[in-house]
Amino acid sequence: MAGSRHFDLVSHWRIDAPVERVWSALTEPESWPRWWPYVRSVRLLKVGGADGVGSVRRIEWATRLPYDLVVEVEAIESLKHERLRGRSRGQLRGEGLWLLRSDGGSTDVTYVWRVELVQPWMRWLAPLLAPVFRWNHRGVMRAGGLGLAGHLGVSSRVLC
């Protein structure tokens, strides 16, 4: 954590599916609530280009803690089968980067999120609650990796 406002969060998934299938699932956020237990809803607010860049979605998240989050995510970069980058605003501000690497018939997925705490109570309590915030993020991401593998009908190794 840099100061009490920013967190750098990194998650790793190894999904036993080709990168094309993993990419397809990650680039269809409206389907996430079907396989990612903590995603309550995804709503398209703005259509982007053919590669999705410029699109904006409102994502409602449940958490392992007694609060929910709503963020709007704008797709700002897309390199097919390799990299997706988005910028979030709302209750959490930041930038997220999905990195995919094909490894035979499997896909290594890394998600890096630099997030700024917006809510005053989060900023105020961040020095004390940083381990809890990280624990929460790991659990949400772990559920996503396992959910994606289940959705694709394959096994996974989630290292969040």
Rank of each mutant, 00 (worst) to 15 (best):
M1V: 11
A2S: 12
A2K: 12
L9M: 13
S11N: 12
I15Y: 05
V19M: 04
V19A: 12
E20V: 12
V22M: 03
T27E: 06
E30S: 03
S31F: 00
W32L: 04
P33V: 10
R34M: 08
P37D: 14
Y38A: 11
L45Y: 02
L45W: 02
K46D: 03
V47C: 00
G48E: 01
G48Q: 01
G52M: 04
G52D: 01
V53N: 01
S55A: 15
I59L: 13
Y67I: 06
V70K: 07
E72W: 02
V73T: 10
E74W: 03
A75W: 05
E77G: 04
K80W: 04
L84S: 06
R85Q: 14
R85W: 01
G86Q: 05
S88D: 10
R89S: 13
G90Y: 05
G90P: 04
R93H: 13
E95T: 15
E95Q: 15
G96N: 11
W98Y: 15
S106C: 10
S106M: 08
T110E: 15
Y111H: 14
R114W: 05
V115G: 13
V118I: 14
P120Y: 07
W121P: 00
R123S: 10
A130M: 09
V132L: 15
F133R: 07
R134N: 05
R134H: 10
N136D: 15
V140Q: 08
M141D: 06
M141G: 03
A143W: 11
L148F: 04
G150P: 00
H151F: 14
S155M: 08
S156G: 15
V158F: 09
